[in-house]
Nucleic acid binder design. Structure first.
Lengths: 360, 360
DNA sequence: CAAACTCCCGGAAACGTTTACAGCAGGCAG
DNA sequence: CTGCCTGCTGTAAACGTTTCCGGGAGTTTG
């Protein structure tokens, strides 16, 4: 009862009041010492001692309320299981860490509601900024992005006039590179295993595939096009459906996970890769190099996009008044054994992990 | 100048004061309405309108300072590129989401300093609790875990008397399962490609391998043991070194990434899998099923461990006074083509994604 | 018609920190 | 000896919420 002032936090942990009282100084002095600014040698000693004795640890939430920053940055992606996001994350991480901040990742599962909820929650000051890579974008969603309380950078395609920092690639021409490569190798019955058409990358890649065939004067056989989602199992299943009704001599896949699924469907159906069917994936992830035969893949510069997005974000955090900017990363093709004209008998030696492959 | 009361936050965003003033009510009433508790119909209308007009969004940091909770939970793992952590994360995510919280992931890169820094930062109230899966544990580290201001659950081996919630598996006997399986299939020159020996899993698996061979009365040929790190490239390189000096008829790998590296090293060296060399990985990740031939792998129940860890954490958040608990998940073997006695000509059909394989 | 009870409201405190400001002591120059 | 400057210190306000509490108006009950 006689306790003048509550000096512990609700759960009994010491606060700056506890330390100050124990050191016999004001909370202002205590705070100053704990932040290493000012204080006489004597005060410093007393406060340090008191802090150590009670095991003081500052409450970051309270500090953030005061300082208006948390030192945290978030990345929201659809599926951490997709190695393309892992590469992107690593690139972002290194930039963000260099600025003294910490990166947190959140997997949205591709559900709009989930992602919007994240924006409506995390972005409300728990982090200093966020990078999001949505695969579906609705108006509602876009609105949430635009008036987010914290800076947001979007990785991926976005409406041209959206006032949001944006780093994109051109997966449409990326698919074109794959088709060009296959046509040049003499393939004509080129199939396409895509992700969902109601996603931004799904539609872009579909359009790119059709445009590329048209450019080469090849009539599109709809039986050679199949759709699943962007993961391994769906890629395998989609390819099985496709093989049940058509005889491609090449397959373009909308990402590397799908391509791995396709590879296994092909092998299970007794097709040789690349002799019978050439295979080209997309994203050029580590996974492509981990397959046998190693997969050709269209690089969409995921690491580069991540790096640039992180830089845009940091700049915007530093100066929120900046006009919205948009950057673009060009795709390139990494040709490997799965689409080689002359099949290799053994895997190539492991290439240096990070450097982009020869481009065609 | 004549402004009685500053009603906007520093960066010009509306606060509850702004809304209250505009609606002509007190901040208490505004707050109540915004939280959906109390308020006359008339007040509710006015506040809702005012909030919509100014585009009010609550400051989560301030709310957390008051409520002493953030609704966020963090998971810290070494390497998100390792699919075993992806599986663990998915399991944790589903439990955590069911409690209305959000999961954030952080990759530590396996560096102690990084991980301790994370604890000293995130754990200082930015999250309501965290799950960490360290691969190296120092005393300093352990101390940081023990007196963390927020509940912490450790996934992985920990000193027996550490007063920290802990979910572990027994990778020592896990390696034993692999060796038993290979011995039963008639293999005798069994090699082992491990991760770093200064890590907790590295030492446990090394011990398990030696114990298992001894149990079967097989003398250990040190040339059949090689060490790298826990990733693909190192696994491949380590296997190449091993093959340059010894002729194994089977290989046990400390995780699936290493096993994939080993597979490619074997194929590149002209060895057939499983005819010449049988291969068993560890962790039983999706990756094992994505290889050709599909990889046998020792499941360490990563999803199950994640699920249990999440449950322990939620219980501890609900009641911090609980005594420290420890749970254990038993390993099991998923036998597939890479260690089959009779080699298959085509890949097996894709198994159901999540269910554990038949155990041997 | 008075008393008791409900509802709703606003003032103010609280969460734990940082920091602007003013006061005070001591040292030095005039 | 007086005045000023310097270096510390403590008081108090602020960050943006939520919530306790007391009071007032309106309604029901005895």
């Amino acid at each position: 009862m006689g306790r003048k002032r509550l000096q512990e936090s609700a759960d009994g942990r010491p606060t700056v009041h506890t330390v100050a009282a124990r050191a016999g100084v004001s909370i202002a002095s205590a705070s100053r010492v704990l932040n290493g600014v000012g204080g006489s040698p004597e005060t410093v000693r007393k406060v340090r001692e008191a802090a150590a004795e009670v095991g003081y640890v500052p409450n970051a939430i309270a500090r953030s309320l005061q300082s208006q920053r948390t030192g945290l940055v978030a990345l929201a992606v659809e599926d951490i299981g997709n190695p393309v996001y892992v590469e992107m994350m690593r690139a972002i991480e290194s930039v963000v860490a260099a600025s003294g901040r910490q990166l947190l990742v959140h997997a949205t599962g591709g559900q709009i509601a989930n992602e919007t909820a994240l924006l409506r929650r995390l972005a409300h000051r728990y982090v200093d900024g966020m990078i999001v890579s949505p695969i579906r974008v609705t108006d509602d969603h876009l609105a949430a992005l635009v008036d987010s309380p914290v800076p947001v950078v979007v990785v991926g395609q976005l409406a041209a006039d959206a006032p949001v920092d944006n780093v994109r690639t051109d997966s449409r021409t990326g698919v074109g590179l794959a088709v060009d490569h296959l046509v040049a190798a003499g393939r004509r019955r080129i199939g396409f295993v895509n992700g969902p058409l109601d996603t931004v990358p799904g539609t872009a890649r579909d359009a790119g595939f059709r445009a590329a065939l048209a450019r080469h004067g090849i009539a599109l056989d709809e039986r050679l096009v199949e759709v699943g989602d962007f993961r391994y199992a769906a890629g395998r299943a989609a390819t099985e459906r496709l093989l049940a009704r058509a005889q491609p001599d090449a397959l373009v896949c909308a990402n590397d996970l799908i391509a791995v699924g396709a590879l296994h469907a092909l092998l299970a159906a007794g097709r040789r890769v690349p002799e019978d069917v050439a295979l080209v994936g997309m994203d050029d992830t580590e996974l492509a190099r981990m397959m046998f035969p190693q997969l050709s893949s269209v690089s969409l510069g995921s690491a580069e996009r991540g790096r640039r997005a992180a830089e845009l974000l940091l700049q915007r955090i530093a100066d929120p008044a900046l006009p919205p900017r948009r950057e673009q990363v060009a795709p390139s093709l990494a040709a490997r054994a799965s689409s080689a004209a002359i099949p290799l008998l053994v895997p190539e030696p492991a290439p240096a992990p990070r450097t982009p492959e020869v481009t065609a």
